[in-house]
């Protein structure tokens, strides 16, 4: 039985060692800056031939959930006018603020902006940029408004790694926002 006792003590010692490893998960909580978010989308309409700039934004500074979006502007444009449309994406949950537009531009062969007005007659969008494979990107372009009316402008950023073919179908949405659109 001496052997037995020895073995039992060995087991006890092993167990004590294992319990010493207990640690507190609270010590390791810190904000993660590698995680990518898009917290704001700003559309910059510049009336062609002028320097009249109107900007319209969606902002949800803390990302999905948490606090509700702080800003979701209604786009107001003049009828029968041509605008230069530039888009800006930011991650404001980081400090300093992360410019996602730049990252999209760097990986333009994986991204496609899609602008869909409803009803379609409200606005016509023409891409003003191309990636290395000659497919459109949509970071800049022109938007020509039609006759006065109300509707929506859907702004999508399609993420299409390895599958971009110039159509919206492949990939999935990184941004999908329905802005209210007023042309008057």
């Amino acid at each position: 039985m001496k052997m037995n006792r020895k073995l039992t003590w060995m087991l006890l010692a092993a167990m004590t060692t294992a319990f010493v490893q207990c640690k507190d998960s609270g010590d390791e909580v810190e904000p993660d800056d590698e995680n990518e978010l898009i917290t704001s989308v700003t559309l910059k309409f510049t009336e062609q031939g002028t320097s009249n700039v109107s900007t319209f934004s969606y902002k949800d500074a803390d990302g999905d959930g948490g606090n509700a979006p702080t800003k979701f502007d209604t786009i107001a444009l003049k009828p029968n006018t041509t605008y230069t449309l530039a888009v800006e994406l930011l991650d404001e949950s980081k400090s300093p603020v992360d410019d996602i537009t730049k990252e999209v531009a760097e990986e333009s062969d994986e991204h496609l902006f899609v602008y869909t007005p409803s009803p379609a007659a409200l606005l016509t969008y023409t891409y003003g940029d191309k990636d290395k494979n000659n497919y459109p990107i949509g970071l800049t372009g022109s938007a020509k408004t039609g006759a006065a009316g109300n509707g929506t402008l859907k702004v999508q950023l399609r993420h299409q790694p390895g599958a971009k073919n110039g159509t919206p179908t492949p990939g999935s949405d990184d941004v999908n926002l329905d802005f209210q659109l007023k042309v008057k």
């Binding site: 319990f19 207990c22 640690k23 507190d24 998960s25 609270g26 390791e28 909580v29 993660d32 590698e34 995680n35």
Partner: peptide, 17 residues
């Protein structure tokens, strides 16, 4: 039972003891 969870990446569930 004693357990602790360490989580990193996209926030999904908290760390816990």
């Amino acid at each position: 039972l004693y357990q602790y969870n360490l989580m990193s990446g996209r926030p999904l569930i908290p760390n816990f003891n």
